[in-house]
Simulated scan of single mutants.
Amino acid sequence: MIKISTVELYVIQMPLKSPFLTHLGAVKDREGIIVKVTNTDGLTGFGEGVAFSTPWYTEETVETCLHMLKNFLIPLLQKHPIEHPGELSVLFKSIKRNNMAKAAIETALWDLFAKSHLEPLSKIIGGTRAVIASGVVVATDSTAKALQQIENYLVDGYQRIKVKINPKQDYSFLSEIRKIYPDLPIMADANSAYSLKDIDRLKALDELNLLMIEQPLAHDDIIEHAVLQKEIRTPICLDESIVSFDDARKAIEIGSCQVINIKMGRVGGLHEAIKIHDYCFERGIPVWCGGMIEFGISRAHNIALASLPGFSIPGDISASSRFWDEDIISPEVTVENGVITVPKYPGIGFEINEKRLQETLLSKKSFFF
Rank of each mutant, 00 (worst) to 15 (best):
M1A: 11
I2M: 15
S5C: 02
S5V: 09
T6C: 09
L9P: 11
Y10V: 00
I12W: 03
I12V: 05
P15C: 05
L16I: 10
F20C: 05
F20P: 08
L21K: 11
K28M: 09
E31M: 10
G32I: 04
I33S: 11
T40E: 15
D41F: 01
G42H: 13
L43N: 14
L43H: 14
T44A: 14
F46N: 11
F52C: 11
F52T: 08
T58C: 08
T58V: 09
T58P: 06
E59L: 11
E59A: 14
T61I: 12
T64A: 10
C65I: 10
N71W: 09
I74N: 07
Q78A: 03
Q78H: 06
P81L: 01
P85K: 00
P85T: 00
P85M: 00
G86I: 09
L88H: 00
S89R: 14
S89A: 15
L91W: 15
R97H: 13
N98V: 05
A101I: 04
W110L: 12
D111I: 02
L112V: 01
S116D: 07
P120D: 11
I125S: 04
R129F: 03
A133Y: 08
G135H: 07
V136N: 03
T140P: 06
S142V: 12
A144T: 15
A144P: 00
G157Y: 10
V163E: 02
K168N: 14
L174D: 02
I177C: 06
I180R: 13
P182L: 04
D183L: 12
P185Q: 08
I186N: 09
M187V: 05
M187H: 13
M187D: 14
S192G: 13
D198P: 04
L205A: 01
M212C: 12
A218M: 12
D220R: 13
D221E: 10
D221M: 00
D221Y: 02
I222A: 14
H225E: 03
R233P: 05
I236Q: 07
I236N: 06
C237L: 08
E240A: 07
Q258D: 14
Q258V: 07
V259M: 11
R266D: 02
G269P: 03
G269F: 04
Y279R: 03
V287L: 07
W288M: 10
W288S: 06
I293R: 01
E294N: 12
E294H: 04
F295S: 11
I297M: 00
A300V: 02
H301P: 06
N302T: 01
I303W: 05
A304C: 07
L305M: 04
A306N: 00
S307E: 00
L308E: 06
P309T: 06
P314E: 07
P314N: 11
I317L: 13
I329R: 08
I329S: 09
T334N: 09
T334K: 13
V335K: 01
I340C: 03
T341R: 08
P343L: 12
K344Q: 15
I348L: 10
G349S: 12
E351D: 14
I352Q: 05
Q358V: 06
T360L: 07
L362W: 10
F367M: 01
